[in-house]
Each structure stands twice: as C-alpha cells, then as structure tokens.
Design a protein around this nucleic acid. Structure first.
Lengths: 244, 244
DNA sequence: TCAAAAGTGTTAAGTTTACACCCATGA
DNA sequence: TCATGGGTGTAAACTTAACACTTTTGA
C-alpha cells in the first residue's frame, strides 16, 4: 500500500523510530473525530439528538455529538463510546456513514471526521447525561442550522438509513420492544417521508413471520386497543427476507 | 462537537498552540491513508488493478494501490492523486467506500484508511506508470490473497458498486466511449454475477433515450457487425431514470 | 352515541420473466 | 455453406397499488 514508493524504495535505517519500523513517518498525522447522527422516533416523527454547544469551538451553535478517536480505539469503538457518554446506552445499532475530510471543514484545526448514524429508542436513555451535555431531541423537520459540515452528514445519514431500513429490519431499533402495527407504519412513513396504505402495509407485515403478535394489548393509542407485536431476531435469521 | 467537554470545559490558555486555537491538542493524531479499489472490464470479466508490492511493508504481497493523505488534501483529493500517480488518469469516477480503522489493521503502525473505488476504461491509461508501480490487472474471480484488510475493502467496494450500478449510470465508465449492446450486457452480467436475458435487457436499454445509437458499427466482435451506442450524460440529466 | 383508531380482501394496473427464431457476414 | 454473434415481440406470472367498510370502546 501507500504509494510514495518513489520516495521510499525500501525500509532504510532512517525510517526507524525507536524499536518499531516506521515506513510512514514523513507523512502528516490528523485528528480523527467521530460524529453521531442519533435518530429517535416519537409521535409519528423522527428526531435527532443534538447538542446546543456550551463549549468551544462554535459555542452556542447546534451540532452533532462527537468525539476524538483514541489510540486504543477503532472509529467504530469511538462512536460507540461517544454514544455511551451521551446516552448511557451500550449495544445501540450504528452504521458508518462515511469520512468527511474537507481541509476547512472546521475553522481552526484540521480534523477528519467519520460520521455514524445510530438508531435508539427515544424512551430509554440516561436523561441526566443528556442534560449534562446540553443535548435535545429536535424534530428532523425543524432542524436548526448546524455547525461545520454536520448538515451534510445528516443528509447523507438520512439517505443511508432510509435505504437500509427499506431492506433490513433495522427500524425496530427505533421502537420499544413491543409495538403496534400503527406505530410501525407511522415509523416507516416518517422514514420514507410518505404515507403508506394501511392494508398493503399490514399484508406485507403479515408475510414476515418474525414480526410476531403477542398476547399483549396497547391501550394508550386508542380506545379499542391494538395488538402489540415484537420483532423476533432469531426467527428473522432463519429466513432473512425483509421489505417494507 | 467532540465530547470530552468534561476535560475541556472552555478554551483555556493552555489549549493554545502558537497563534491558533487548539481545543483538541490532548487528542492523538493518526496517519490517514486512502486505498483504491480500481475496477476495469474486458472480455466479459471485471478486473482489479493490484500492486505486487516491491516495497515494504509486506513486500512481495498483493495489495490495493494506496497513499497517505497530505495536509493540503481532502481524502477525496488524495484518492484522486493516488489514482493519477498509478494510471496517469484524471477525472476518473470514484466513490468513497468507507473508513477502515481497526487498531491492528496494519502490523507495524496505526493507520486509518479511507477506501475508494474507481471505475476506469481498461484500455486507456499510462502503461509505463502502471509498470513502474508493478501493478497488474487481475481477474476479480481469481484474486490472490491481499494484505491487511484489503480483501474486506474489496468486498465492500464490490457490493457498493453493484448497488450503485443498478440504479445510476456509472457502468459506462468501465466501457469505451462507444460500445455495443452485447458489451453493455456482458458488463452488467459481470457486475451482477448472473446472466441476463438479451431481449429483456435490450428492451430496458431502449427505454433509456440517453443511451443513443450512433451510426458507427463495431466489426471486431462479430462478422455481422454490431451497432455502437453512446451514453449521453446531458440527455440523462434531463430525465435521470436508470435501471438495469 | 359518537369520535377515533383497529382491523380486514379484492381487483386492476403495472412490472417482470420466460422464451425462439431469422439475419448478416467472414472464414 | 455454415458458424457466430446481432437483432427482434409476445404472453404468462407475479407484484404493486388502489380502494371502503365494520369493530370496539372510552369519553
């Protein structure tokens, strides 16, 4: 790898630092950040967990939650850690969105950032931690201007999440363990940004045997009550077909 | 951004280096590489342009072409530069595949690498440069073991390229300016890894007005000769629908 | 008693798939 | 003259989209 083989035909004594080989030491190093697009869902709408920054740089602005990759971490690890720091949650569904590396993406320092999106249940997190970070759930239809290139990250994350959610059962991460079909439908309507036909939707759900009806009834959403369903991931593994 | 606000409540004098603010200086920095999955197409098969490494590390192994991001570049820029260094080509179609950051992905140094795939016409490049880098077109069905995590990069790139090629007219980058429908079909068969029905394929092509029949005839591929077509990207912009 | 959400099938339209023969030409 | 790839249409299968009424119950 790493081209530059003209300048570095073989490893030379000059290229050693201490005990370890260093073929690379004439190249620059960079801060590598991670930024998290954290999706939540309530009342038929998607929300993002955003920071109203009470620290520099861009104090006072709105931003994604982020952090710096450490020596001991992959960027996946760093993203998980950053999410844990903010929400107290482990094992949250996350996907890499991509690297953002424009030279001037931050005003004062060169930082390359790897964006990740996360899907979490908006009802289960550590409120104290979120408050401490001055973070708020913001309706995705009413996003404020975001600092740096964070709006671009959000856009890319939305597209990627939408694409993935249509072919893989990742949407359930945004719901409680048990959910009504109306909730599931309104979730997918929010993800796709369009209304879906109730009967066609339920027909498709009925074909996915791993979306299992429980004997529980939800009495919050309606007078009549609606059957609660759950996603059975083991059953899904056996016949992993999904389309909504 | 960047969490760690406990350790860094506000910018303090200590956080300044020279003239510039440095809120981040207690964080580590990393080499940031780019690696290129370079696709070509000939004789009905996909090929990758791979290096038989005549330099360390992993001299003698097969790898992707790569290089290090410089201060003056985004990773997109770096990927373009690296491709230019190897092939002499500018304006090649490239897409980011993602960041690869496992701590031990390289044996001797911590390097975070951003992978890109490139689609190029296998008939048009600077052979001298390729020879100088000891690079070879390898049939994608007969790939040798690759160093580091490059096989993982290739797999992810193939999936991403396949996905994109089915919905956006990027495949033309792998063909000459003019091509026969048989060539186009065999390209898509190679991308999808499955045979396609000739009549159905041509029916779909016929619906895309921006795939224009020229008055040129290809006499190489057959005795009878086959009409040559070209992709009209301006016509495509006007009605950007694509599905193959 | 009525408003509000839950639940339930059928048909038409559109899309996708399968399939076979004649044509033109150079060797 | 024949082997080779070029070129062409139709029907069946399947998938998707459109659509309206009855049920239950808490206020």
């Amino acid at each position: 790898m790493k081209s530059k083989d003209k300048a570095l035909p073989t490893s030379s004594p000059l290229e050693r630092t201490g005990e370890r080989l260093s073929y690379y030491s004439h190249n620059p190093k960079f801060y590598v950040a991670v930024d998290c697009i954290i999706f939540g869902f309530k009342e038929g709408e998607l929300y993002l967990l955003l920071l109203k920054r009470n620290f520099e740089p861009c104090k006072g602005g709105w931003s994604l939650m982020g952090g710096f990759t450490q020596e001991s971490e992959s960027t996946d690890d760093a993203a998980k850690r950053v999410l844990l720091e903010l929400t107290g949650l482990e094992k949250v569904y996350m996907e890499q969105v991509g690297a953002f590396s424009a030279i001037d993406r931050e005003p004062n320092e060169r930082v390359i950032s790897i964006a990740y999106y996360a899907l979490m249940n908006i009802n289960e997190y550590d409120h104290e931690l979120v408050e401490k970070h001055n973070a708020f759930w913001v309706n995705i239809k009413e996003l404020p201007p975001l600092i740096f290139d964070h709006e671009e990250m959000v856009e890319k994350a939305r597209k990627k999440m939408q694409q993935k959610a249509s072919t893989k059962p990742i949407g359930f991460n945004l719901l409680s363990n048990m959910f009504t079909l109306s909730q599931l439908q309104s979730l997918y309507e929010a993800i796709y940004g369009e209304e879906l036909d109730k009967r066609n939707f339920r027909k498709r759900v009925a074909e996915m045997d791993y979306i299992e009806k429980t004997d529980q009834i939800d009495k919050q959403g309606s007078k009549r009550g609606a059957a609660l369903y759950q996603f059975n991931s083991k059953a899904y593994q056996k016949d992993p077909k999904f389309k909504l």
